[in-house]
Each structure stands twice: as C-alpha cells, then as structure tokens.
Design a protein around this nucleic acid. Structure first.
Length: 511
DNA sequence: TAGGATTGCAA
DNA sequence: TATTGCAATCCTA
C-alpha cells in the first residue's frame, strides 16, 4: 500500500475520461451535497482567505477534508483502492510527475527571438501578397473572412461546408492551391502564424526570469490512460519542416556543460499488437529482423525487393490498421485509390490472421461486458458499443479496437517512468557513481514525457550510466511486470521492446 | 467576458 | 470516413 492515496485518481480509474472529477462535482454526484465554492466565500476573489469569517473558513475547510474522507471510504468499500493499475501505476506515478514538474525545462530565449524575427518578416511579406491577390485587406486569421474573400468575392470553387459557412482548412486550401496562388499563400501564412503565436510567443510569454518553463502534467484527463501537458503543452512541439523543426533547438540543457538525452520506444504499438494478438507471423518479425515495414510488404505481397514508395505504403498500413482505419481513410492518407487501399487492408488481415481474430474478440467482449481492457487490466466502459445507430456503433468499435493497444502503451511508459525515477533516486554504489562518491544520487533530471518518449537533462559524467540503465529499464518492462498481465501471454511470445536513444545539446535530435 | 467554432500541432 | 490531447483566434451571445 502506498504511503498516500488520491481520490481523484480512484475516480479516474473507474471511469477514465469522464469530465468533472473535482471534489465538489464528486460530492454532488455521490453524496448529493453541494460544497461551498471558493468563489462564494471570497466574493469572487475580491477578498483573501484571511479576511473571511472564521465560521465560513471553518466550514470551507471542513468540507474539503470531510468530503475527501467520505470519497475515500466509498472507494475503500467498493474496493477501488485495491485496483491494480491504481496501486501499482497511477499512485506511484504522482511523485514521478512531481519530480518532473519541479525540474523545469531550460529554453534558449535568443534562439526563439531570432525565430520570431524570421517569422515576423515572412508573415509580413505573405500578408502583402495575399492582400494584393484579394485586392483588399482583411483578417487572414478569421476563417469567416477568408471564405468570404475566396468563395464570395473571388468566386473560387466551394469544397466543404461547416456549421456556420464554408471550410477553409488545410484540406480545402491544399486542393485550391493547385490552381489558385492565394490559397497557397494563405496556407503558408497560417503555418508561420501558428508557429509564431503558439510556439514562439506562447513560450516567451510564460518564460521565467531565468529562462525556464514549468509545464504541468495532468494524470486524469485522457480516455486512453495517457498523460497530457499544459501551460505550455510540451507534447505538441513541432518536429517537421525547416523553421518548425528549429523550435526544438530552443529546448536546451540547463547549463552549457549539461546534455539533453532522449529515449523513444520504437514501433511500440505494433509490438504490443503482435503480443496481445499472439499472431505468429507478426511475432516472428519482431523475434527476427524487427523490420516490420519490410516484413509486412514481403509478407503481404510475396515479394522481396521493395521500393521506397512501397515501404512507405507498408508503413502506413502497419500504422493505420491499429487505429481501425477504413479503406477510404487509408486511401486519403497516403493518396492511393480506395480500391487499392481496400486490397492492402484485406491482405494485411489475411496474412496476419490472428490480428483479425484479436480485434473481433475485443468487439465481442465489449458487446457482452460493456468494456475493453489493457494488458495490465486498465478498463474502459464503452456502453455505446451496442448502439443501433450504425455510425455510433462503428465509432465505438474503432475505439474498442484501438484502446487496449494505446492503453497498454501508456501503462508501459508509466511503469518505465516509475522505475527510472526509483533508479535515479536510489543512492548509487561507489562503483556505479560517475564520480565514485559513496551514496550519491544521480544529478540528472527526467524533464519531459511525450507518450512514447522520455527526455532527460543530463549532468556531465552521467551520460553512460543513464543511457545503459534507462534503456534497460524501458526495454524490460514487460518481462519485469508480467505478473500484472490480465491476458494470457506465453513466455516465448514476450517480445523485446526496442528503445532508440540519442544525446544532444538540445531537444532536436536525429529524428 | 464566456464559450462555441475553426484551425492546426503532437503521439 | 483513425484516436487522444492543448491552444490560438475569431466571433456571437
């Protein structure tokens, strides 16, 4: 039993993704009791807590404690506190996330300022061109004004409607940009503007005086057991393109002589699929070559030499099948005909037959029991799996198919983070300590998690010990925690997870 | 000023 | 006609 407990996490485990997990919401939901709000007692923050009457302060404080206690008692009675995922993953993770949050992330302010100058210049230029093409000035950031200009004034062909007018999203503009320069320019404008507002201004705005940012990790918002990150969201920093990719160069080690180290689970979802489905052919790939894309193509098309474009298709098929994509979706995603896409998907399931059975079983079970389950027993209720509406039913089925995989992914990563944290907190033996000091802890810090990657700020001299141990911990999670499995997996089907690694002075790496 | 709608970034 | 998120911006109520 952990040293501490969290009733919100208890609630989250029961019903991941349900909004309104705050104490006052739960108190209403379960005890039909409306708590006093902080807004009320402070007259909407007009007075401070010290200024309110003792009686009100007492009631407010008492409620907080008592309702938490009642919630705990309820969860104890319902045996929620004994939930394996809660006890072994979510509760221990609290401290890990705390450590990450207080470690902060150093930012290269000058780098961002330089990017700001470049982007500002580009945007200004594009604005002029767009106004010239439109023959008037308007707000390019306003979708409404954009479609008014494009479809009403310039009479470009209309593509897609929205609730309030016409869509002018990427898909539409990309189609238009084949013939109309203005569409292409607006796309460029948006791209740069996005980088400038969200990633440059957004980060500069919240930078501390010594150039650090301190993100928050939220443990109870996603329906898939993943974490989320806010203020800033460090989980959607751009990776592509010459200028967007530059942004990652701005996340640097905290001191000049420190390094940024980056670990990433390679193709983890396909590996999980192989293991959970126990598909012999898929498992074989990972036990042998490990090159899943090459293997899929060879296997599906009974062909040895493959071209770069064929490999790209194989990669897409491997990737999208996990999400239960339709032939239509796949065709759009990689720009092939629906007919072709259908053939690829059919052949995938024909060859990897157990995968098909695995997905079918998940749906059957969900229909029967109303929930799906991860490898470690994380449950999600999908009541609408039996909906009569075919659209709703289809969506539910796609969710059901994807969730066990994505959840298991999240569980693996969380377990790895807990073990990494334990490793970093434990006093090192003199032999292992980089400086040979007795009882010393590592000084490096785990700073960022992005779903299947973890990033460290590394103290000089600790590179080797971290590289070796973090990689080992991450790759061995399934073997170490097989006792928690709720699916039966044969010992020989426990495949190795693969972790890629790189080290640099900033987050931008050889990706 | 709050919140819906649109858009776009990540895994 | 894949999923999960967060955030900037516009614009209406």
């Amino acid at each position: 039993m952990a040293k501490f407990y969290d009733t919100i996490l208890g609630e989250y485990i029961q019903n991941p993704g349900v909004r309104g997990l705050s104490l006052d919401k739960l108190s209403e939901k379960y005890f039909d009791y409306e708590m006093i709000h902080y807004d009320e007692i402070t007259n909407k923050w007009k007075i401070s807590f010290e200024e309110i009457s003792l009686e009100l302060a007492w009631k407010y404080s008492w409620e907080d404690v008592y309702m938490t206690y009642k919630l705990f008692k309820k969860q104890e009675k319902e045996k929620i506190i004994e939930n394996q995922v809660l006890e072994n993953i979510e509760i221990p993770l609290i401290e890990v996330l705390k450590n990450m949050e207080i470690s902060w992330v150093k930012v290269d302010k000058n780098k961002l300022k330089k990017l700001w100058e470049i982007l500002k210049e580009e945007i200004k230029g594009l604005e002029l061109v767009i106004f010239d093409l439109a023959k008037e000035e308007f707000n390019i950031n306003s979708p409404k004004q954009v479609w008014e200009i494009l479809f009403e004034k310039l009479e470009l062909p209309k593509w897609k409607k929205t609730k309030t007018g016409y869509s002018v999203g990427v898909e539409v503009l990309e189609n238009l940009s084949k013939e109309y320069e203005i569409a292409e320019k607006i796309l460029n404008y948006r791209h740069y503007k996005k980088l400038l507002s969200t990633y440059i201004d957004g980060i500069l705005k919240i930078l501390s005086s010594d150039d650090f940012i301190y993100t928050s990790y939220n443990q109870t918002v996603t329906t898939t057991g993943r974490l989320s990150s806010t203020k800033p969201n460090l989980q959607n920093i751009p990776v592509w393109n010459w200028i967007a990719g530059e942004i990652r160069w701005a996340f640097i080690s905290r001191f000049e002589w420190w390094k940024i180290m980056w670990f990433d689970y390679s193709q983890i979802e396909v590996r999980i699929l192989a293991m959970m489905s126990r598909d012999d052919h898929l498992l074989e790939v990972f036990k042998n070559s490990g090159d899943i894309h090459q293997a899929t193509w060879e296997f599906i098309f009974e062909k040895k030499d493959i071209s770069a474009s064929e490999r790209k298709i194989a990669k897409a098929v491997n990737f999208w099948v996990i999400y239960g994509i339709s032939a239509f979706g796949l065709s759009k995603m990689i720009n092939i005909s629906v007919k072709q896409a259908k053939i690829y998907i059919e052949r995938f399931f024909l060859k990897y037959g157990e995968v098909k059975n695995f997905f079918n079983d998940i749906i059957l079970n969900a229909e029967k029991n109303g929930f799906v389950e991860s490898l470690f027993g994380r449950k999600r209720y999908i009541a609408w799996i039996n909906d009569r509406n075919k659209m709703i039913k289809n969506t539910a089925e796609r969710e059901a198919k994807n969730m066990p995989i994505q959840w298991t992914n999240a569980d693996i990563m969380k377990l790895a983070m807990i073990d990494i944290n334990n490793f970093m907190e434990a006093p090192l033996s003199p032999a292992l300590s980089p400086q040979g000091r007795k009882g010393e802890k590592l000084k490096s810090k785990m700073i960022i998690q992005v779903h299947d990657e973890v990033i460290f700020d590394v103290f000089p001299g600790e590179e080797k010990i971290l590289q070796k141990n973090v990689k080992k911990i991450m790759e061995n999670i399934l073997i170490k925690y097989k006792k928690y499995f709720t699916y039966t997996i044969k010992e020989e089907d426990l495949i190795d997870l693969k972790v890629d690694f790189s080290i640099w002075n900033s987050w931008k790496e050889a990706k």
